[in-house]
Amino acid sequence: MSMNSTAIQQTPKSQINFEQVKKKQRMKNFSKGMLFLLPSIILFSVFLFYPLARTIYLSFFLTDAAGATTVFVGWENYVTMFTSPIFLQSMKSTFLFVLYTVPITIIISLFLAVIANEKLKGIGFFRTIYSSTMGISVAAASVFWLYLFHPSMGPLNLLLNAIGAEGIGWLTDTSWALFAIAITTIWMNIGFTFLILLGGLQSIDSSLYESADIDGAGYFYKLRRITIPMLSPTLFFVVTVTIINAFQTFGQIDILTQGGPVNSTNLVVYSIYREAFVNYKFGSASAQAVLLFIIILLMTFLQFKFGERKVHYQ
């Protein structure tokens, strides 16, 4: 600004090139903006963009144990991946896992959020409890569930025995293991989902409910006609995030089952990890990672394309 004003003082009015001054200001604004973005750009480049490019590059090669490229194989890693029964099983488990966890997490969290949104005495206590799993690390939660699932002294099987039923090999039975992991994941995700949904509920204008009260709307009518539609942007966000999270599940599998029994809980991210750091096949691991990236991208894109139409932003 100061530069401009001196410029104006020095040159007679007719000679000021307004276009040039404007251009200069635009440049200045742009470089200022870039300066603010620089820290994120650097961090993103180092930890996201470069690894992404590197992964795509690696997926077309065979590598040695240290991860250095040896032979260019083109699409072969992808071809092997799609013909490998283990990987296809892994994809199937992953989709099943998403199907198990996402709807149930959302439904339970929504229910908890709706009841925790009531103005009752001591509601703060329940809100803390419901959101508490957010503060627990995946490792701690997994160890806790490992104990619960323990075949002989785990409380779950003790309970089953007490009511006369036979104990379940939660983490060792192929038909139960994925389900057990799903339960753990749902439990861990509820805290975050609950908190976001509660925040969404609290931002709904109370006068909408008051107006509905005067009109004589019942509880479920209000829930269906006001709460759910008004909550739709939040629900949309939560669904998107939960799906992405479910696709990226790793920690609980590593601690609880290591992908077993018989690969039944070998979800994609865990499969990538094993391929890369147990089998040292960085090329095919990269190919799987690229595929996962594309799937998540596609899912999110589809959600925005079809889900957002039903979302009511204020």
């Binding site: 204008d205 008051e210 107006s211 005067i214 004589g216 006609r225 539609p229």
Partner: peptide, 19 residues
């Protein structure tokens, strides 16, 4: 409120944005 047979207009109108 519903049994008092009255209607009310709110300061912010309380219109349902999705309807």
């Amino acid at each position: 409120p519903k049994d008092r047979n009255l209607s009310m207009v709110f300061q912010n109108y309380a219109l349902y944005p999705h309807l």
